[in-house]
Design a protein around this nucleic acid. Structure first.
Ligand SMILES: [Mn+2]
Ligand SMILES: [Mn+2]
Ligand SMILES: [Mn+2]
Ligand SMILES: [Mn+2]
Lengths: 223, 223
DNA sequence: ATAAAAATTTAGACAAATCTAAAAAAATGG
DNA sequence: CCATTTTTTTAGATTTGTCTAAATTTTTAT
């Protein structure tokens, strides 16, 4: 089956919204896709006819098994292309989303799988989000602190423990903020300090104390 | 300016047809694009309104300067993606066209230029066709024989001189046919024989006599 | 020169994806 | 429990790219 880019965008948006609320509303979809709610209603009828989702009017929407499968395929393509752009074509992590938004609709599945191989079957994209594998399995991400991250692992800042002004000043100075993505460049056993790199800034060293204070979401098996 | 994939396909088809006939007819375009002639007429009006071509009804069509420029950009993308698929993702040269037909419509021009750099600013695609550079210049291709091709140069078989049964048997044995693309792997000064490689077959050595008999179109400045 | 053939355009439709405005259903809150 | 607000759907258009059938123009060949 081949679906239009528009339909694929709907399916992907529903999948993402479903992570939070089990039931996805017309208005939340309209907001996510930047369309009029009326357009969403129209499209939901078509997607239902194609068995990609369950939908009863006024009742919200849920993906079927095949809808989920499709969503995961698109997300896989999106994240692999993002990583390709950053790793191989030297793009910054902040400029790749819009391009991947187009590339994710290229239909060849052989292409995605070859790209996956070319990139060494990576587990996470440049933003730290997990890349589904060929079978649609999504690698688990670990919730922990920078002090436990492996060398060369990517992660995204999900929280700060000690939020004292002194600590926040240090973090702000190093551009460490909620949602920021970072890479552990090196771990020093001497003092258990860690060298980390944030996009657009030189690498910096942080003490074990600070590293334990930065909560992150990161891939379980980097490399 | 951003154009739809459909419009880009029209512009590209007109450009290619223009290489032969200076004047491109509605029917030839319809055939090339596998659409009804009426659809072509409709689209030509739109493309004319966008100043991409000159068009008077019943009079055929010609690209304007900006139409040509757009065509060359699309061809550049198409051929760079084809080469990427063959060189980096191990696709066969015969399976890449359809995928490139989709990839050529990805809009980011930064992406194409980075891809160009990633591939080492190549001069020809896997089919031996020239790749326009960033400024839209198309490298000249030379018309000659295998015996004059430089080492590691790619070329496409454009003709056979001696067509005796004996010669044809030898050529067929080595899978050398009109339209085949080949690469010169090594030139041996000892006997002026040449080792050539055809897609999907092991490299073979051909004598100077045979090399002089295979006419090819190839890039002037390989590497 | 003119009739037949071929090429091209026009007319009228249609599917996909979108919109605005109006109607209907559901949720909320006194 | 009912009135108001919010959400969602329906109705009716619009744009883009396509189609078939019919009309028109150009070309070709007697
Ligand atoms: Mn998209
Ligand atoms: Mn991402
Ligand atoms: Mn195309
Ligand atoms: Mn090609």
């Amino acid at each position: 089956m081949k679906y239009s880019a528009s339909k694929e965008n709907y399916i992907k948006a529903i999948f993402h919204l479903q992570q939070e609320l089990e039931q996805v509303s017309t208005n939340s979809l309209a907001e996510a896709l930047e369309t009029a709610p009326a357009s969403v209603t129209d499209m939901l009828k078509k997607l239902k006819a194609q068995q990609l989702l369950q939908y009863e009017r006024y009742r919200g929407v849920r993906l079927t098994a095949s809808g989920k499968k499709l969503a995961i395929q698109i997300i896989r393509k999106h994240r692999l292309w993002e990583l390709f752009l950053v790793e191989k074509l030297q793009f910054g992590w902040e400029e790749v989303h819009d391009i991947a938004e187009e590339l994710e609709h290229i239909s060849s599945s052989k292409l995605v799988d070859r790209l996956d191989e070319f990139l060494g079957f990576p587990k996470a994209d440049p933003h730290g989000d997990p890349i589904p594998d060929m079978q649609g399995r999504i690698p688990a991400l670990r919730q922990s602190t920078v002090s436990e991250m492996p060398e060369s692992g990517f992660g995204r800042v999900s929280g700060i423990g000690d939020q004292s002004p002194a600590m926040l000043a240090l973090l702000r100075h190093n551009h460490i903020a909620l949602g920021a993505h970072l890479q552990v460049r090196k771990r020093f056993e001497a003092d258990r300090s860690v060298e980390i790199k944030l996009a657009g800034h030189p690498a910096v060293n942080i003490s074990e104390h600070v590293a334990k204070n930065i909560r992150v979401t990161y891939e379980n098996n980097p490399q």
